[in-house]
Design a binder for these strands. Sequence first.
DNA 1: TGTTGGCACTCGGAAGGTAAGAGTGCTAAT
DNA 2: ATTAGCACTCTTACCTTCCGAGTGCCAACA
Lengths: 350, 350
Amino acid sequence: MQLDNRKKEVLHAIVDDYVSTNEPVGSKSLIERHNFQVSSATLRNDMAELEHLGLIEKPHTSAGRIPSDKGYREYVNSLMTIDELSPREQLEIEKRIDTSVDEVTDLIKNATHTLSETTGFVSLAMSPRLKKSFLKQLKILMIEPGKALVVMVLSAGVVKDKVVRIPNFLSDEQIMKISGAVEKHLTGKPLDEITLVTVESAGKSTDVPEPLLKQVLYEAYAAIKQADELNIYLEGEHRMLSLPDFSSLGRARDLLGTLSDSGMVAGYVNEMENAAKEGGSDDSFMIRIGQEITLEGLDDCSFITATYNLTDSVSGNIGVIGPKRMLYSKVISQIDFVKKKLNKEMQRFT
Amino acid sequence: MQLDNRKKEVLHAIVDDYVSTNEPVGSKSLIERHNFQVSSATLRNDMAELEHLGLIEKPHTSAGRIPSDKGYREYVNSLMTIDELSPREQLEIEKRIDTSVDEVTDLIKNATHTLSETTGFVSLAMSPRLKKSFLKQLKILMIEPGKALVVMVLSAGVVKDKVVRIPNFLSDEQIMKISGAVEKHLTGKPLDEITLVTVESAGKSTDVPEPLLKQVLYEAYAAIKQADELNIYLEGEHRMLSLPDFSSLGRARDLLGTLSDSGMVAGYVNEMENAAKEGGSDDSFMIRIGQEITLEGLDDCSFITATYNLTDSVSGNIGVIGPKRMLYSKVISQIDFVKKKLNKEMQRFT
DNA sequence: TGTTGGCACTCGGAAGGTAAGAGTGCTAAT
DNA sequence: ATTAGCACTCTTACCTTCCGAGTGCCAACA
């Protein structure tokens, strides 16, 4: 995209003005508000050019221009500058995140909540991708005949457990034997390398009769697999209703309808993450604008996520879904700050 | 409320018509749609009377009448008849609730989801009130230096746990001692009878040095208290946006804003439950209509909940928040059916 | 070649005015 | 107690008009 400097400034100004006023911006008001040393007619020529390039568009013939998805994209990629949050703002966020929690999950939820409050948009976080973390402990505890609890401690400092059904007549002792054998064989293995076969071979060394053993091992395997399932935390959906961008009930309904299917959103975030990894983009933010988002009803939204790290190999995402008419630089620095705060606090757990 | 038969029929008809058409109903359309053996002028007189009694009201001078909160209340209390769901509908619900889950919590979530889908409204469920359930097992497991897991098995078939911090230099053995002592003293006690004092005295019999012991016991106590905290599950908030009753963005925003504070909703449900218990109402449904609801933004809603039972003494609530312009009898039978299904499936866990 | 002033043109939105329709309350008659 | 009739009210939809912001283009200019 080869734009001369003034055209860049014009696009920049249009985005800024439109974001702050929510009105299509015309050549005249552009002159009034910014210090362009040229006349409105000149800007009109520039704007016609920008429109030709698909960076801005007009809602109808006699209105000003608004940025197109492509225009926002250009703005985000090359035009905007991101500056740090002011100390005030930083303090505000630090005050909000409650870090006196005992589990990583709570910390993430807190961060998500804070992010939604500070941005005024929908925030979301994915639970850490635990596939790459390894098993530090695994215990099967007898709860009552027919019922046991599989407790797993993972390298990332996370504890997971699951109630499982076991054959009724297994004794406490037998369970302990199995538990010990499984733990011995699996400790140190990353979750994504543990398969049903691995688990079953781990149980071989016990003298528990075959079919019973097999059932317990299967349940243990299921518990392990459940441990690396991804959760998503979404917050502040209702805030979208306060934005003029969603003052049409139809849009709002489509948006919230889609967001209510959290599994679908989680899937999309995962796709984004994978695409970013493959694309080799070392940019720390993933940004999708408007129609770039393939989820239904998010045409007027932008999706911005960052990656937090629980350990070197275990990470997750945290970010925001807002109107595409947003203060990108501000929101990005807010996400960035929350992410950093999260990374720092997470060290306590690992 | 002494109403002659025809007036009752008129109110009944007005509610029915208004619920199904969402239009204020006038004397003429009332005649057309129902088999009143009198003229519209007579109905007009009756309606004037009903309005005088505060049971119906008109949005403006030249419109038909709509039921007031009091009118709905009369309808719900004395006018409507509740009939069972058709076999079709029953089947539909049974098909939807996935009962192949391992934990009570998942069952409740499933039921809530189903209820929202079948009614088309917001559904909600409270987790079981575990105060009255007693401790069957309590184990403190060492995870790593400074960190332990408190696992509790409750009489209601529920397993709860919490990661807690403990002094770094406590040994595995010491923790096991404490765990054993606490379990021995507390097993069989209902949760609401366990206090910090109880827990601390339970630890006396160990030979672990005082300040360390005290910290562990405190954490154990905190874990127990956390176990009986109430959770609320809310589903389908976005469905409200599809209802004509909330086609005004302002109303919709207020409603979803309030619902987003799940703690507040949970508190309200609890209040309702307590009020019902004190009132000695043996009615199995709690119904709040319009302004009867003290939560902000729910003026146009009705709140209907029923009580499910996990055990004799452990119960929770499940229900619906919908527009007050709803098919009460249908919704009530839907909730009733889901509740019964839930009660039945829960027996598996206890 | 890029910039500028000028001007005719377009279109959406606000304002105002009218007509239709549904429903009411009241009165007088049955 | 019930009914027919009628004047009155109020909302809604629809039309017309008008204003202003903004555009594109042209001819003149540096």
